[in-house]
């Protein structure tokens, strides 16, 4: 039988003024899903519900076909790496990593082999005797991960695992995490609020806002077809315009941008900068500014009163004329109010 992974159906909760709206979500077995959202959107709360650290008000959670909604945290087989890691202080790394085995009185060859495999994979051997307070951020993160992996989890929950690390360490550790997950094949739900981190890691993205899941899908889906203005803004889409469709024609401000298979109405029009093609032909625009970012050159263009960002192959001088082509098939319209 195929392992169905994590299945959440209508999970709700309420704590003080915060309310978690019914969450429906599916993370296939072996997938690396990323739960993305701004601070205070309920990501950590959802993880705590999944671990059993908070009681749900309603709904159902299944993991690998087992219902675990009301199960004790100790028997859920969920490995949890909380934000700031929460290592057990006053103890060394080995004591922390062996904690789950010692609580279950588990001994023997299999446990030792698992322990050795995990500490070797995570390059923790030199630090085993060190007290956790003396470890660096990266080492602490690996100890927390090793501690969670010792439980042989069916699901690994990582709550902002790299946010406490220096910027320079985040990329390599994210790559290590992804590599490790691929090797172990454990279903993973990773929480973060950084889009680059989410795109680098996730095969499945879930976007959350004010206690509700607002969209889930592949990274490409979420970037190209945001379900709401919030998702478009949160995924840093620079081209987001108030638009109207009249008689099948798309209007932004007073400029008609062509016809498409759209119903008449008010929309938010979204076009990622990489799909706006710059050439000598196309609609005539004027360069406002041009800037270099880590990944591309971005050019800000004024096009018949519309402010537009496009990916470019070179820096341009302000005031330069430029032709812009806006492909209709790449234009995504979000009904206003969505």
């Amino acid at each position: 039988m195929v392992n169905p992974g994590l299945h959440i159906d209508g999970l709700t909760g309420r704590w003080g003024s915060f309310r978690l709206e019914p969450v429906r979500m599916q993370v296939p077995a072996g997938a690396y899903a990323v739960l993305l959202g701004p601070s205070g959107s309920g990501k950590t709360t959802l993880l705590e519900l999944l671990c059993g650290l908070r009681p749900p008000a309603g709904g159902r959670v299944e993991l690998g076909g087992r219902e675990i909604t009301q199960a004790d945290p100790a028997v859920r087989r969920i490995g949890y790496v909380p934000q700031e890691y929460h290592l057990f202080s006053g103890r060394n790394a080995e004591w922390n990593i062996r904690f789950s085995a010692s609580m279950r009185n588990a001994r023997g060859e299999a446990i030792e082999a698992r322990f050795r495999r995990i500490v070797e994979t995570l390059h923790l051997v030199p630090f085993l005797r060190q007290r956790v307070e003396t470890l660096s951020g990266g080492e602490r993160q690996r100890v927390a991960l090793a501690r969670a992996l010792m439980t042989e989890p069916e699901l690994l929950l990582l709550d902002e695992p790299v946010s406490a690390l220096p910027e320079s360490l985040r990329d390599p550790i994210c790559r290590e995490l992804k590599d490790l997950q691929t090797r172990l094949g454990v279903t993973t739900l990773h929480v973060c609020h950084n889009l680059d981190e989410a795109l680098a890691l996730g095969s499945h993205l879930v976007v959350m806002d004010t206690g509700r899941i607002v969209q889930e899908g592949s990274p490409q889906d979420i970037l190209d077809r945001p379900a709401s203005r919030f998702v478009a803004q949160f995924t840093q889409c620079k081209n987001l315009w108030a638009a109207e469709v009249r008689a099948g024609e798309l209007w932004i401000q007073d400029t008609a941008l062509g016809r498409g298979n759209w119903e008449d109405g008010s929309y938010w029009a979204v076009l990622r900068p990489e799909y706006a093609a710059l050439s000598k032909t196309g609609l005539p625009g004027r360069v406002l500014e041009s800037m270099r970012t880590c990944h591309a050159v971005l050019t800000h263009i004024e096009l018949r009163g519309i402010s537009l960002w496009a990916c470019d192959d070179r820096l341009r001088a302000p005031g330069d004329p430029v032709g812009v082509t806006l492909p209709h098939e790449r234009m995504h319209l979000i009904p206003r109010g969505a």
Binding site: E48, C51, G52, L53, D72, P73, A74, R76, I78, G79, Y80, P82, H86, F88, F99, S100, M103, R104, R147, A148, M150, T151
Partner: peptide
């Protein structure tokens, strides 16, 4: 949260309190 994490690692409520 330390006690909570301990519980996800297989500790009972008493074990989390004691250890």
């Amino acid at each position: 949260k330390h006690a909570g994490v301990a519980r996800t690692l297989g500790a009972t409520r008493w074990q989390a309190f004691w250890h």
